[in-house]
Amino acid sequence: MYHLSNAFHLVANVDESSGLNWSTRYNIIEGIGYGLCHLHEQNDKPIIHLDLKPANILLDDNLVPKITDFGLSRLGQLQTICTSSCVGTFGYMAPELLYGGTITSKLDIFSFGVIIMEIITGHRDYPGLAGTSSDEFIELSLQKWRNVLQRSPGHGSLEMDCAQIKRCINAGLICVNPDRTKRPPIAEIIRMIQGSESIDCETGNEVP
């Protein structure tokens, strides 16, 4: 096994054809979503991870992700609680934890959104940080991937892959919305990624 963060070193620039292909990245995104869903919704005692980041995600020999390191996790409670201590890793922490000490399952949703952006683009930037609108961010990311996919030998359907990439980006933008009440539960995010749930772009993250 190796850490997901190690894989990022191979794909730091998304416009390069080397590294993980789109299908592999999509499977990793979906796998992390399933793992988080198990923690939040399928356990007898729901778990809030509180430190979801690439360094805490292992990939097995088949690149199937496994969420690890539960040292900061909260067991058996998904209701809102408050804390005076700031837990987690900067860059993956939601604003309500950074500035208010509020803990809910929506913290993990925010972290998952940052990870989605990192897997797709090779960096943690998103519109609220990059100074671009969501539309500009999506189009730039898609154009980079079109360039990669068009250069890939034996590649299948460009439009199908681009549609899948766009769904993942939109889902990621919803996850990193600064308003936690607009971040859906993880099961809904998974359905958005898979295309079985419509995506309301109004809930996405826009530059003020």
Rank of each mutant, 00 (worst) to 15 (best):
M1T: 15
H3W: 05
L4I: 06
S5V: 14
S5E: 11
N6P: 03
H9A: 13
L10S: 11
N13M: 11
D15H: 10
D15L: 07
D15P: 03
L20R: 05
N21E: 14
W22N: 01
T24G: 03
N27K: 14
I28Y: 04
I29K: 03
I29S: 07
G31R: 00
G33Y: 07
Y34K: 12
D44K: 04
D44E: 12
D44L: 09
P46W: 06
H49R: 01
H49K: 00
L52E: 04
L52Y: 02
K53T: 04
A55F: 04
L63R: 05
L63E: 08
I67R: 08
T68C: 15
D69Y: 02
D69V: 10
D69G: 05
F70V: 13
L72P: 07
S73Y: 02
R74K: 15
R74Y: 02
G76Y: 01
Q77I: 15
L78I: 14
I81F: 09
C82D: 11
T83H: 08
C86G: 02
F90Y: 13
G91V: 13
E96C: 12
L97E: 04
L98N: 08
G100I: 13
I103L: 15
I103F: 10
S105W: 00
L107H: 02
F110H: 07
F112K: 02
F112L: 12
G113Q: 08
G113E: 09
V114G: 05
I115G: 00
I116T: 09
M117C: 13
I119P: 04
T121M: 08
H123V: 01
R124H: 01
R124C: 12
R124I: 11
D125E: 13
D125L: 14
L129Q: 12
T132R: 03
T132Q: 07
S133F: 09
S134C: 12
D135R: 00
D135I: 06
L140C: 01
L140W: 02
K144P: 06
R146V: 09
N147K: 11
V148P: 09
R151I: 14
S152P: 01
P153S: 04
H155V: 14
Q164N: 13
Q164K: 14
R167T: 11
C168F: 08
C168A: 14
C168M: 15
L173S: 05
C175D: 02
P178K: 03
P178H: 12
R180G: 06
K182H: 13
K182G: 03
R183I: 09
P184S: 05
I186W: 00
I189W: 01
I189D: 03
M192Q: 10
M192R: 02
I193Y: 00
I193K: 00
Q194N: 15
S198I: 14
D200I: 07
C201Q: 11
E202F: 08
